[in-house]
């Protein structure tokens, strides 16, 4: 806990050149943050991303699969996995303060809901009730 009587913000003297922002807050890790992943995980993440991308393009070239009902859902699921992996590991949301998760997932949910609602409103998707 910092000293509430501190009369002024303190610039870290190690900033030879000031940062590209306004804040003077330092860089100490917050207790809620877990350590970020390292090269060992990063390379696996990259490999998984590459493999999924190859799989996505692969199924695009299988006419029977493209014609099947599974094509669109499987593409959506694969890209959602890629999306989630990048956000969780590369953007280290998984290891960060929960506030950042709220700041990102809240808008993301509203955005995805809006896309789906607009698809319905413009008749690009429809529910068949029988």
């Amino acid at each position: 806990m910092a000293d509430p009587h501190t009369p002024a913000p303190v610039i870290d003297p190690s900033h030879a050149l000031p940062p590209a922002g306004e804040s003077t807050a330092g860089h100490a890790h917050h207790p809620d943050e877990k350590p970020h992943p390292t090269w060992k995980q990063y390379k696996w993440v990259a490999l998984i991303l590459a493999v999924i991308t190859i799989a996505e393009v692969w199924i695009y070239y299988i006419p029977a699969f493209v014609a099947s009902r599974l094509f669109v859902p499987s593409l959506l699921i694969m890209s959602a996995i890629k999306f989630a992996i990048v956000v969780m590991f590369y953007m280290h949301l998984r290891y960060d303060h929960k506030l950042f998760r709220v700041l990102f997932t809240g808008p993301l949910i509203i955005a995805i809901t809006s896309v789906i609602a607009l698809m319905f409103l413009f008749g690009q998707v429809a529910l068949r009730l029988q």
Partner: peptide
């Protein structure tokens, strides 16, 4: 703007 400091250097 971004490369100029917000406030005078201050030592703890």
């Amino acid at each position: 703007w971004l490369l100029s400091p917000l406030e005078p250097e201050h030592h703890a």
